[in-house]
Amino acid sequence: MAVLQLRDVSKSYGQGSRRVDAVRDVSLDVDHGEVVALEGPSGSGKTTLLALAGALLSPTSGEIFLDGDNVTRYGARARTRYRRDRVGFVFQGSNMVPFLTARENLLVVGSFGGSDRSAIRHRADELLEQLDLGAVRDQIATRLSGGERQRVAIARALMRDPSLLLVDEPTASLNFELGTRVVDALLSEVHRRQKACIMVTHDDRMARLSDRIVEIRDGRILSERPLS
């Protein structure tokens, strides 16, 4: 069974004449150890789709399952816990708590409850090593370079050992070389840890590094092409 299953998911904003159908009847499965690149022009519904999978939005219709659990049935508290424990986010813009160090930015997810402190510390140190951030672990977030920041964001997303990673334009602010490094790091972590991952990008060079490209236009899936 796929880790993430979207079943005929639609989302519209607003009502009446101002209604926008941002996502229309999307069905999509993402498997263990699979990175799906979501590609499409601006306004095609990529961010909305991620927000739906991450329970930041509720679909207007359709159902979303993670590890077989129907996420669409969750109430507010269960959704907060779902985002904390079962999903890892890497956002497009700023991700960091600016006044915390790289390491503290990882530890902060441990203060939201439901975790063991020493386990959190251990995991933070492990992830900092694996993502090649050992040298900057005690740097304040604002002093990190763009590439370092995105890798810290990936490390933070992995802190609670989630089943699903949702990554929105992780290379938007990076040059090609740095972007490739960040995407490589993401891919190797996803493959090693057997996570499911959706990565939004409109850079085709980045998309081609993934396992499968899903093209989206006007809220609908246009095509899917497996790579490798």
């Binding site: 991700n95 708590v97 939201f112």
Partner: peptide, 15 residues
């Protein structure tokens, strides 16, 4: 913006 990010990654509002 920061509060939005923290809530998105699972910080309860009460916290």
């Amino acid at each position: 913006a920061l509060l939005g990010i923290l809530k998105a990654i699972g910080a309860p509002g009460s916290y």
